[in-house]
Simulated scan of single mutants.
Amino acid sequence: MSETCLKIAITKGLGVGIIAGSAMVKIPQMVKILRAGSGEGISVPGALLEMYAISSTWAYAVARQFPFTAWGEAFFLAIQTSGIIILCLVYAKKSSLAGIYLVAYIGVMYVLLSGQIPVNVLATLQACNMPVMLVSRMIQILQNYRNGHTGQLSAITMVLVFLGSLARIFTSIQETGDPVLMWVFISSSSSSGAIVLQLFWYWNTTNEYLKKKAKAE
C-alpha cells in the first residue's frame, strides 16, 4: 500500500470513527444531568455559542459539498448539545425558553441548509467560529473558576470532545485542505483541553461539593 493510500485509509477511518463517537459523545453529559435533576455548573450561554460554531461548520461543509466523513459529527453534536441546553433550561424552570430555543434552532438550520444562503456568507460565519468557540469555552472556564468546582460537567464527554477535536485537525487537512476548518479544530481542541484540565484539577472539590449538596437536599 502506497503512502498516499495509507493516508487516505487512515483519514477515512478516523472520519468514520469520529462520526460514530460523536453520535454518543455527549450522552454521558445528558445522563449526568438527568440523574442529578440539575444542569448546575454547565454554562447555557457557552453552550449556545458552541451551537453557533457547530451549526455554521455543518452548513458551510454541506454548501462546499465536503464528504460526510469530514463534517458528519456536527449533525450529531447539534442534536446532543441542543438536548443539553433544553435539559438545563427545563431543570432551571425555564421550559418556555427551551421550547422557543428548539423552534428557533430548527428554523435557522432550515434556512442555512436550504441552499439559498451564498457560500461566501456561510464562509464568513464559519470564519467566525474560532473566536466564537474560544469565547464559548472561556465562559465555561471562567464559570468553573468562579464556582471553584465543575458541577455536573461530564469528564467523559469533555475528554471525548477534546480527543475528537485533535483527530479532526488531521482529517480536515487530509479531506478538505480547508485552512478555516483546520484552525477551527485547533482552537476547539486547545480550549476543550483547558476544560479537561479543570475537571481533573477540581475533581475532589467537585465531588465534595456535590455530596454536601445532596445531603442538604
Rank of each mutant, 00 (worst) to 15 (best):
E40S: 07
E40K: 13
G41M: 12
G41A: 13
G41D: 10
S43H: 10
V44R: 06
P45Q: 02
P45F: 00
G46A: 09
A47G: 04
A47D: 00
E50D: 04
E50K: 01
Y52C: 05
Y52L: 01
I54K: 06
I54V: 15
S55T: 14
S55D: 14
S55Y: 00
T57A: 12
W58D: 02
A59G: 07
A59Y: 00
Y60H: 04
A61R: 02
V62M: 13
Q65C: 06
Q65F: 11
F66C: 07
F66L: 08
P67Q: 08
W71D: 08
E73Q: 12
F75Q: 08
F76P: 00
F76T: 13
F76S: 09
L77T: 02
A78I: 03
I79M: 09
Q80R: 12
I84T: 04
I85T: 00
I86N: 09
L87I: 05
C88D: 06
C88Y: 03
C88I: 04
L89A: 09
V90W: 04
Y91T: 11
A92C: 11
L97G: 03
A98S: 07
G99W: 14
G99T: 12
I100D: 08
Y101E: 13
L102H: 02
L102F: 15
V103I: 15
V103M: 12
A104P: 10
I106N: 07
I106L: 13
V108W: 13
M109H: 06
M109V: 03
V111N: 11
L113M: 15
S114F: 05
S114N: 12
G115R: 09
G115F: 12
Q116F: 05
Q116D: 06
Q116H: 04
I117C: 04
I117H: 00
I117W: 03
V119Y: 01
N120F: 13
N120C: 00
L122H: 08
L122N: 08
T124D: 02
L125V: 11
L125R: 10
Q126M: 11
A127M: 14
A127Q: 09
A127S: 15
N129V: 11
M130S: 10
P131A: 10
V132E: 15
V135E: 07
I139A: 11
I141L: 15
I141N: 00
L142W: 13
Q143V: 01
Q143H: 01
N144H: 03
Y145A: 10
Y145G: 03
Y145C: 03
R146H: 09
N147M: 14
